[in-house]
Simulated scan of single mutants.
Amino acid sequence: MTELNMAEAINRALTEEMERDDDIIVLGQDIGVDGGVFRITDGLLDKYGERRVIDTPVAESGIVGLCIGMAAGGLSPVCEMQFSGFAYMGLHQLEMHASRFRWRTRGRYPMPITVRVPFGAGVHALEHHSDSKEVFYAHIPGLKMVVPSGPRNTRALMLSAIRDPDPVVFFEPKATYRAFREEVPDEEETLPLGTSRTAREGDDLTMISYGAMLHRVLEAAETLSADDGVEAEVIDLLSLSPLDHERFAESARRTGRVLVVHEAHRSYGPAGEIIARLNEESFWYLEAPIRRVTGFDTHVPYFAREQAYLPSVDGILDAARATLDD
């Protein structure tokens, strides 16, 4: 086991896959000479050269379009969008072509594209740098949508994403890039796309989250245990499409009470789909209305106010206690 942070875990996954398969190409703005704005791809250019580690122009549509051509030609490109707010320029390429190509050709041309997207607030970034609009991608048929929460599952999911025959949008919560370290196995480890995990076991309340907010939920769960004698079960989604609804539905049937937490906007956010699934599959087991703690229906504020926008541990605790009191 080696202790890595999330940034190092992504770099390690890319290194391992590029060593394994010469058809894997890494590309994006400043990812070569500079090693990426977050230094995620640091050292790859020296190891694999400019034919496999490509600095591109500032043209997100062109980056994704190039990936589509590479994938159709038998390569496995991994591109970086630098910040989620810049990725919208490539959204039409993902929706109109990458997500449809395998279906359009009746499986003749797989699209093994991995689109890395640093997302979320909490790092004192500027406008367009702190968005959390994962629903744009989770809504598109043919795309897979992954959101890791820590170094170990990041490395495992990245290996699976690169090897998948479908395009995968890999949302990386940049607030956790270097927030903590975790032991990562030295041997190869993968996680199937579309599966979640139980981050904490409990029988009194189900708390569902993903990405950076998972760690605030875990902190709130520990406080509930210490101060209220309540044992909350915490589900880490890891993937928004496919959505592992079986795990959180089973948990809801046991606990009877559910809280969903994410930093994306409240209206039409992932919590809405999660709650709809629970109402369809677990309604008669619920003992209280499902609550959600989310970002607000506003643009993400500048960094002086971003913590007021994000779900706080106190806000999560208030919602959890209200759900337990219902």
Rank of each mutant, 00 (worst) to 15 (best):
M1V: 02
T2N: 11
L4N: 13
E16A: 03
D21I: 01
I25A: 04
L27P: 05
G36Q: 09
T41P: 12
T41K: 10
L44V: 00
D46Y: 04
K47T: 12
E50D: 15
E50V: 05
V53G: 08
S61D: 10
V64S: 06
G65E: 02
C67M: 09
G69L: 10
M70N: 14
A72G: 03
A72Q: 09
P77T: 00
C79K: 13
C79Q: 11
Q82S: 13
F86R: 08
Y88P: 01
M89D: 08
L91M: 00
M96G: 02
F101H: 13
R108N: 05
V115F: 01
V115S: 08
V115L: 01
V117L: 09
P118F: 09
G120D: 11
G120P: 04
A121M: 10
V123M: 14
D131W: 08
V135L: 03
A138I: 06
P141F: 03
P141V: 00
V147T: 03
P151S: 12
L157R: 01
M158Y: 03
I162Q: 10
P165T: 02
F170V: 06
P173S: 13
K174M: 04
E183Q: 07
V184E: 06
P185F: 12
E187C: 00
L191T: 05
G194F: 00
T195K: 12
T206D: 15
M207P: 05
Y210N: 13
M213D: 11
R216A: 11
E219N: 07
T223F: 13
G229R: 05
V234Y: 09
L237Y: 12
L238K: 09
S239W: 02
S251W: 07
R253F: 11
R257C: 12
R257H: 10
V258H: 09
V261K: 11
E263W: 07
S267M: 14
S267Y: 15
Y268F: 10
E273S: 09
I274Y: 10
A276K: 10
E280N: 06
W284T: 00
W284A: 01
Y285N: 05
A288G: 10
R292I: 03
G295F: 14
G295C: 13
H299G: 14
Y302H: 12
R305H: 09
R305Y: 13
S312Y: 05
V313K: 10
V313H: 12
G315K: 02
I316S: 14
D318I: 08
D318M: 06
A319M: 11
R321P: 13
A322G: 15
T323S: 04
T323F: 09
